[in-house]
């Protein structure tokens, strides 16, 4: 009978959907911060690390890739 496969497919569809619902329930209940707050953390991090970031303008850290190589022909 062409229905012989159906129960298996239906059960796998149900178990998949159950997983999706379970995942969504979990995600719906997590604690969230306001963007004003979480964004401030990111901005603060950038600000705090600015002077350590050699690729930012005005940062004077030693950078071996910017030095002239000793074997360069003068």
């Amino acid at each position: 009978m062409d229905r012989s496969k159906q129960p298996v497919q239906v059960s796998s569809q149900i178990s998949k959907l159950r997983k999706v619902v379970e995942q969504l329930r979990k995600e719906a209940n997590i604690d969230r911060a306001k963007v004003s707050e979480s964004g401030w953390f990111l901005a603060d991090y950038c600000d705090m690390c600015y002077h350590k970031d050699p690729l930012l303008p005005g940062v004077m850290t030693y950078n071996p890739y910017k030095e002239k190589r000793s074997c360069e022909i003068v």
């Binding site: 911060a33 963007v35 964004g39 990111l42 600000d47």
Partner: peptide
Amino acid sequence: LNDVDLMVVAEKLDTL
């Protein structure tokens, strides 16, 4: 919780 745009938060940083 999307109370403000990140660009607004970023205003406190100087332009590069």
